[in-house]
Design a binder for these strands. Sequence first.
DNA 1: CCGAAATGAAACATGAGCGTCCTAAAAAAC
DNA 2: GTTTTTTAGGACGCTCATGTTTCATTTCGG
Lengths: 197, 197
Amino acid sequence: MSERDLSPTQQRTRAALLRAGIEVLSNDPSAPLGEVASRAGVARSTLHRYFADKTALTAAITEFVTAEHDDALHRADLTEGTGLDALRRLALELMDRLDVLAWFLGPALLVEGLHSGSIDDMTGEPDPAVLDAAARGIADGSIDPALSPQWCESFVWSVLFSANHAPAASGMTTTEARSQAMRSLLKALAADPAAVR
Amino acid sequence: MSERDLSPTQQRTRAALLRAGIEVLSNDPSAPLGEVASRAGVARSTLHRYFADKTALTAAITEFVTAEHDDALHRADLTEGTGLDALRRLALELMDRLDVLAWFLGPALLVEGLHSGSIDDMTGEPDPAVLDAAARGIADGSIDPALSPQWCESFVWSVLFSANHAPAASGMTTTEARSQAMRSLLKALAADPAAVR
DNA sequence: CCGAAATGAAACATGAGCGTCCTAAAAAAC
DNA sequence: GTTTTTTAGGACGCTCATGTTTCATTTCGG
């Protein structure tokens, strides 16, 4: 009861609402629903016709973003090549979806809107595939053995966060931020940082 | 009208409220004020006696955290030594204050609670002293010339963010996270990453 | 121990966002 | 061009956090 069984028209408005929800709620999780609606170019009542609750909206958004994340994970093909190369491909894929994945960098880290609003629930998403790739990288000598797989994953997201906010915060362009982010990421993770072109 | 002219008793409750405010509101900026009060072990009316508005509370918190940040900046003595060493000292000082500086890593980045709640207001705090140190590091050959000063600063905060959340997200200890964070930071920024012990 | 200061607890009015519902208008499908 | 679908634009009651006020109680200072 989430996506199919919708007319083409409905699918587009639904998609617009999800996009708007990500844009608005990523910057201010407590923003009124009316703001999401107007951002989507839609009346508040219409939003409510597609998503009953605010929780229903956030759940749908999370589902949507998760799908995008899974797609990135799939295309990165983490089981291929050295561990470092896998994480490099992953970071590149994730960067191409930063506008959507901002959802994971904003409210999801703090509120984790799905279930509860409680404090200290498991923030972020420790993905086993990423942990495996990092562990493999440490084993195959491509990733710095002084780093733990958990840190590697956390660090990847940290760099993505910076790459996403740096353009707005300081005055650098998106491409500048991304290239420097990739360089910083690889140098930090590599067992042999000098080999980073 | 902010801190002095307070009895010792009042100073302690005020400090407790600020601490509680940081703890609670950093994780959920839209948390009820009653939650802040109870966290401080104080009645909601008492909180309101110290801070009229919610904006007054957040402003006082920001002032308090900013003071702590300035102190870290002072102790780091950014004008001393190479640029990379300066940033290293800065990161260490900031890490010792992560519990307080979490305020800058959470709501302040998104809501920037002081003035408006609008979107795309200047997120974060581009500090000229840090930019200068980074620029000096690039000039003196200690910092990777492929990185811009703006990115260096953004990256420092990014790593701090990760060091703060990694323990909760994955299962690593605080000391693990901090040591790996420092290593990652230095390797990424250094012009000669191999020289990082 | 006693006056002053500080707090706890509760009641209260207010406003904002939410969720529901309804009707006329617009847009799409045929 | 007509029918069906989808939307806009409200009105409405509800909940909840907020901010204010008052009064009894506790704690502090000398």
